[in-house]
Amino acid sequence: MAQHQVNYTQSGGLPVALTTVDKILNWGRSNSVWALTYGLACCAIEMMASGASRYDFDRFGTIFRASPRQADVMIVAGTLTKKHSEFIRRLYDQMTEPKWVISMGSCANTGGMFNTYATVQGVDRIIPVDMYLPGCAPRPETLQYAVMLLQQKIRKESANKSQKPKRLV
């Protein structure tokens, strides 16, 4: 078995990396964005496809969790009905800070084609949304790109400060 010589003075200095607290916290947060499984309609199929082997969310550190206590991001995938709206708010409140929301697809963004009495006309009436994905349904690439952009957003944020209140009532 080959033994590798560790020569600190020769190969790039001492084993010390200098950074800021913000950077290391954001590095950790942005690379382990655990998502709450929130499939409400057909967008859920695309969300599942994003998690499966072909698109493979695990590469970004995004693992689907079935509990709001363990999740960082809520991907609202599908039509939100008025009957369900109280539950989505409760699950959002149960998620621990810091937390983010991705609104996936037309129905979650604006109610989409369901211009009816029973559909919430956009999840941003209930919970603050960080990212809106267009499409009906958005392809897995779109969701993947959204997660990458969310990672960028997390890296730009200040980590030790509590999150700015988004539109909380």
Partner: peptide, 30 residues
């Protein structure tokens, strides 16, 4: 009505945040 009466249009807002939040959130964009 297909788009719901007043109760239906404000249902989720009234239930989650209370009637006083109607001004902040605003009516639905139909």
């Amino acid at each position: 009505p297909l788009e719901g009466d007043e109760f239906a249009q404000w249902y989720e807002v009234d239930k989650i945040f209370g009637k006083e939040a109607r001004d902040i959130i605003g009516p639905e964009n139909r």
